[in-house]
Structure formats: C-alpha cells, structure tokens
Write a protein that binds this DNA or RNA. Structure first.
Lengths: 198, 198
DNA sequence: CCAAAAGGCGAACGGTCGTGCTTTTATTGG
DNA sequence: CCAATAAAAGCACGACCGTTCGCCTTTTGG
C-alpha cells in the first residue's frame, strides 16, 4: 500500500467518526483536513468531489460494520444463538464500543437521507440497509429450519421488528440519555424471541 | 393578530415543512426567504438569530403534533381505543397525510441532534420526545386500570416498544420505500397489544 | 386623515463552503 | 543517488451562510 492509499484510508476512518456524530452534513472538507493535519486541497485531491468522499465513507462504514459486527456474529451457531450474537454486537456498535463514537453510523445517515433526492450516496446507504435487513431475515429463517422458531413466523416481519428495537434503543440512549435504554432493548428482544419460539 | 405575527406564523409553517424533509441543517434563511417571497433581512427580523428560528420551528411542530395527533386521539375512549387512535394518527402524521410532507418532523430532527452538544434547540426536541413517551406510557397505564391490559405490564417498556415500531415504519417507508411498511407496522402494533392483553 | 410605529427591503460584512489551478515537497524504482 | 512520479501545500475563485444597518413602505391607532 503506497503512501497515498494509506492516508486515504486514515482520512476515511476519521471521516466515519465525524459522520457518526455530526452526520453527512457535518462532514466538511475543511474540518476533516484540520483533524488530519492536512491542507484542504491536499485532502481534496484524494477524492475528487465531495460526493465521492461521501460515497467512500459510507462504504468504509459498511466495511467496518461487516468486519466488527456481522462477520464475528456469523461464527456463532446457526439460528437463535447467531441472532443473539448479532443483536449483542449491534448494541455495542450502537453505543460506540465497537468503532465509532457517535453511535450507529447508519442510524444517523439513514434519517438524514430518507427524504433526500436519489443519488449515489443515498443509493449506497439504502443498499447497506437492505443488506442488513436481509441478513436479519435470513438468520431468522435459518432459525426456523433449525427448529428454534415457529415455521409460520414471518422472517421479514421479524427483521422489521428488531430494527424497531434497535432504532428505539438508539433514540433512547443517544437523544434521551435514558439509563434504562439497554435494559429496555434487551427486554424487547427477548419478548420477540419468546413470541417466535416453538 | 397583527401583520407581523401573521407572517411569522406563515414562515414557521413553511419552515416546519422544510425541516421535515431537509432537516434542521437544511433550513436556511435564504431558502426560507425565497419560498416565502421575502427578503432575507425581512425574514430574519422576525427571529433575531438562527437559533431562535430553530427553536420556534420546533415549537410550532410540537403544536401541530398536539393539534392534529394528540388532541383528537384523546377524545377516543380511555385505554386501548385511545391507544389505537393515537397509533393510527401517528402513522398518518408519519406519512405526511396530516401535516408535513417529509414524514415525521421529530424523527428527522431527533436523529440529527442525538449527538449534538447541549443547546436550546436540542433541549426543546428532547422535551417534546419525553412528553410523547410519557403520553404513550400514561395511556397504556390507563388501559391497565380500565382492565384492557395485564396489570403486570410495564407502561414504559410499552412506550419504548411502540416507539420502535414507529421508527422502523419511518425507516422502512421513507428510506427503503417498502410498500409493505404500513402492514408491518400494524402487524407489530397488534402483536404488542396482544401480548399486553389480559 | 395623519403621525407614529411596525414591517420589509437592499446592500454589505466576515466566514466557510466546495472546487480549480500551480508550485513545492516526499516517495519511489532503476 | 537521481530522475520520475506521487502527494501535499498554497492560493484564489464564486457561492452561500448568518448577521447588521440604514432606508423605504405599509399598517395602525387616535
């Protein structure tokens, strides 16, 4: 890896941190240059437009998520244990233990882009969110064939439900600073599992 | 109402629409002046800083929410029917039928401010969100004393759960454009009620 | 109807934004 | 070690940001 790619990677890591707390809108080239102790133009040269920087940082965040949340969770046994592991890691991802200081990167960015006009950045975020939904549904489906969950349970509804729990957790812990947020999230998760169990 | 207050009110209505789609960050004085066919300085004079404009628009949105969602719902019979009415109206509020084109004003703004430093705007949003959570919990509590729900159910957990359903609905419908989003939300809501029923 | 007050406009300010250029400095391969 | 190449800096630009101020126009109360 040449010097260029090295700085580029470092810039993207810092950018992901910025976005997780300040949103895509708070990610500014000048600010990022300051943080990296680089000149605006020097940093700018690595991406050739702001949009490309944004796309790159979304992709970096997706990598980080795959690397620290998804991949480790996939090593747990299929079905319910894997679901538990994924949930657990997602909670830690959300509260900043695993990577980014501002909680879930995608929670911030999703809300920011939900009514935005179509574009490369939005598309990339949508695709990451779809992937995550599919992942949840698929793991749940596996749980059905493993005999952990009722065969008539709806995996996509389950994915919808658990996403709600996680969004509500993010909301309660980040915005409302509710100390019971994690307990509430775990309680809700257990209730979902109980309702799906055979 | 003098001419001044009249324009001010109209400006705030338009501002709320802008914020619901573009976020607080997308609310710019120049843009708002254009939309209102007013000069920047003329508009600015009504608020005397951007922060005061932001606080005012959050307050206006809270009024709108109370007027179109909360107050009508409170006229339904206590307990479960009231909860249903509130949920139903909140869904319509979220998809823009009731007021603002960009879906739930507070869903956008909450995510934007969750990691922001303390300030009047953030405080006002937090207080509105707390109020809404308390409202949900209280209506649920009433449902317990009316005998609709199990006495050992936890109203605050219920408020957490339902907020998750609504956030997931917002996410699915706005960002992912999932046509089944509303069905999923209603299914999830019914499941929550079923679990809480005697 | 007229004076006083309120509302609105136009121009200008210092800043920051994203984005080009050209030049200087580091890195690298032969 | 030196030439070729890559990376970073410096500087300038037009656009828009929030904000101020002085002037004009409209509304209002007596």
């Amino acid at each position: 890896m040449g010097k260029g790619e090295e700085t580029r990677a470092a810039v993207l890591d810092e950018a992901a941190r910025v976005v997780s707390t300040a949103g895509l809108n708070g990610l500014t080239i000048g600010l990022l240059a300051d943080r990296m102790q680089l000149s605006k133009s020097g940093l700018f040269a690595h991406f050739r437009s702001k949009e490309q920087l944004q796309v790159a940082v979304v992709e970096r965040a997706a990598e980080l998520f795959a690397e620290r949340v998804v991949r480790p969770a996939l090593q747990a046994p299929r079905g319910e244990p894997r679901l538990r592991e994924l949930f657990d890691r997602k909670l830690r991802w959300d509260n900043g233990d695993l990577a980014l200081p501002g909680g879930c990167f995608f929670a911030s960015v999703s809300a920011e882009l939900d009514d935005a006009p179509p574009g490369r950045v939005r598309d990339r975020v949508v695709s990451a969110e779809r992937d995550y939904g599919d992942l949840l549904a698929n793991i749940f489906r596996t749980g059905i064939s493993e005999g952990h969950f009722r065969p008539d349970a709806d995996p996509e509804q389950y994915a919808f439900d658990i996403r709600g729990v996680l969004l509500s957790y993010h909301h309660a812990s980040r915005l409302l600073a509710d100390p019971k947020a994690e307990d509430r999230a775990r309680t809700a998760f257990e209730a979902l599992l109980r309702a799906a169990r055979i």
